[in-house]
Design a binder for these strands. Structure first.
Ligand SMILES: [Mn+2]
Ligand SMILES: [Mn+2]
Ligand SMILES: [Zn+2]
Ligand SMILES: [Zn+2]
Lengths: 148, 148
DNA sequence: AGACTTTTTGAGAACAATTCTCAAAGGAGT
DNA sequence: ACTCCTTTGAGAATTGTTCTCAAAAAGTCT
């Protein structure tokens, strides 16, 4: 059994919930993608495996996966939320290109201690750091220069 | 004339657009609030001044105010975007309490240089740093402890 | 001022992402 | 098999946002 399955199973048990077939399919689909995905994309993946699962169940299962600490909502672009699994894949910075939508990732190592000490100062119980940087990726910057 | 009005007027002129009465009312409303507001809240403020302005025009004017550098979209909570004016009010960190929704702000001074040097390394043209920290404010942390 | 052109507007329809409803099905314990 | 929950699919409903379009307003030129 995959580690993520064990984690989800335990989480559900603690809540008095069951790891049903639809939930299992959604879980596996979420861990079969190694980049960001939207609800729609996740739904299509699940449907490819078994057309039995409904979109409503995908929407219902997502918050459970997040509460279990397996997934994170990482960005929002073109009015859709993007998710990604975070097991063994710590939270990170997202560099989002305004022009082409490309997303680069980099680690939070340098930023984290600063935020943590601020949190201590504010007596704020830190649960999640969400750092998104908006701008122009090098490719788009280049082609913009070429136009001029 | 307020500085923000001059900035908006100039911005509109550059675009061949006009500072009309509805746009002026929306602009003033946005600068009459000194905290975060949703579209709905801005609309209600404008309507209080003059019931002539429509919600569609508020939606149409918001991106103009943002492009003019007067407003920023700062957070998203309970599926609504929050905005705030940023004239003479640099971008900052938002500390968002998961329980009560309270938002604390703090400056980006320590984080900014780190992100800037990363940007240089990635040849990324940085336009905006969006740093939101999710967790528990000290009040909610306290009352959570008292329950146990 | 009048004619012409372009921009802007309000009202409501349309749209799209998400949530809700509800009756049927499933599962664990007895 | 009976009871008591939980879960589900399907589609309706909701909600934030965008679009459409005809009318009004604001220039511009004469
Ligand atoms: Mn990521
Ligand atoms: Mn703010
Ligand atoms: Zn790009
Ligand atoms: Zn709180």
């Amino acid at each position: 059994m995959q580690e993520y399955e064990k984690i989800f199973r335990d989480f559900l048990k603690r809540r008095g919930l069951k790891l049903t077939e639809p939930r299992k399919l959604i879980l596996d689909a979420a861990f079969s993608v190694h980049h960001h995905f939207t609800v729609e994309q996740l739904f299509r993946l699940v449907k490819a495996e078994s057309s039995l699962v409904s979109l409503a169940t995908v929407y219902r299962t997502l918050p459970l996966l997040i509460e279990a600490g397996l997934l994170q909502q990482s960005m929002r672009s073109s009015s859709r939320d993007s998710f990604e699994h975070i097991l063994g894949h710590p939270r990170h910075i997202h560099w989002i290109c305004e022009t082409c939508g490309a997303v680069i990732e980099s680690d939070l190592d340098e930023v984290k201690p600063i935020v943590e000490s601020d949190a201590e100062r504010f007596k704020f119980e830190l649960r999640e750091i969400k750092l998104n940087v908006i701008g122009l990726c090098w490719k788009c910057k280049q082609s913009e220069n070429n136009l001029q």
